[in-house]
Amino acid sequence: MSHAVLHVTGARPNFPKAAPVVAALRARQVEQVLVHTGQHYDDKMSEVFFRDLRLPRPDINLGVGSGTQAGQTAAIMTALETVFLERRPAMVVVYGDVNSTVAAALVAAKLQIPIAHVEAGLRSFDWTMPEEVNRVVTDRLSDVVLATSPDAIAHLAHEGVPAERIHLVGNPMIDTLLAARDRFTPDVVAALGLPDEPYAVATLHRPGNVDDPADVAALVAAVHAVADQVRVVLPLHPRGRGRLEDAGLLDHAGVSVTDPLGYLDFMGLVDGAQLVVTDSGGVQEETTVLGVPCLTLRPNTERPVTITHGTNRLVTREALPQAVADALAAGRPAAWPVPPLWDGHAGERIADVLVAELRARG
């Protein structure tokens, strides 16, 4: 077995979480291997993130591409098994809740390779979300669980995870945000050819919003009602784009659709917005730190700390137009609470935990 820590990334949400951990371990002179599964494989969904976040080029790119939940997860597992057997890492580090995360955890557990899960313990308690299955399975298999917030600690303890495995380290995604903030692209609105006026940002891709035709129709009507009040800019995820456009998303002059943006461009867009409408998990966290009012179009969130310690609130499609009116009337807050340890140093704390674990294992 080697002494290397092997990181598994695969999708857009993984990269801002991994970057601070990779950097902190490098500063501690830990041997590392970075694997990109290729779950998100085009430039706008992955490659631009390596450039924007100054991540090293992946040592291994598996190029698995898209597929069904089962097909994609199986392809990642098959490819990772070969990598793990060849490299025999001292530890596998996984991030978040995407298919690459649970696939890596399953393979590592069966090969008896220690697993560390960054962003452990988040729970929506909604088993219709594939991500919830991925979270719970990954946490159950992990030897080290690294939590971003106290509520995650409580979930892990309730599920019987031994206390010695649990570490409250803060949120490495916020490390990335704070480190890159002076590089956010401030003129992205002008670059997109949009008028110089207030705007909202929307990110919408969850199955509960974009898979069923009736849901898509209701969502488009809600977005149009928002665009009656403020221009809406949508960097549109490939998932569901065709259905949203077929349902008439672009029929409103106040709606501007773009391709997915790189990290710096997207965060510059969010930072300048009056508000954000989203069904994404990570955006709830980023707006919490930036102080941008966030309206989350979901019945639940695995990140309740963004509601109790941030700018986020849950809304239905029916309630969205009034919630937007209220947010526009209130304006962006002058001050707001931020969750504990979301201070830009989570990557360092994670690295310290991992180094101590490696030393304890010899």
Rank of each mutant, 00 (worst) to 15 (best):
R140C: 14
A179I: 00
L156S: 04
V137G: 06
V136F: 03
S142Q: 08
R135M: 03
R181N: 15
H158Y: 06
E159C: 08
L141S: 07
H158W: 11
G170K: 02
A154V: 13
A163H: 11
N171R: 08
L141F: 00
R135A: 02
A179G: 10
V161L: 09
I174N: 13
L178H: 10
G160V: 05
V137L: 10
V144R: 14
N134Y: 06
S149W: 03
V145L: 09
P150M: 08
E132R: 06
N134V: 01
I166S: 04
P130V: 05
G170S: 04
A179F: 03
P130Q: 01
L156H: 04
R140Q: 15
G160I: 00
L177C: 05
R140H: 15
I153S: 06
I174K: 07
L178A: 09
E164M: 11
L141E: 06
L146C: 09
I153R: 00
P150I: 06
V137H: 01
N134T: 05
V144W: 10
A180L: 12
D182C: 13
P172G: 10
L146K: 08
V144I: 14
D182H: 14
D175N: 12
V144P: 12
I174G: 11
T138E: 02
D143Q: 09
R140E: 14
E131C: 02
H155D: 08
A157D: 11
I174E: 11
V145S: 08
M173F: 02
D182I: 06
V136T: 03
L177W: 03
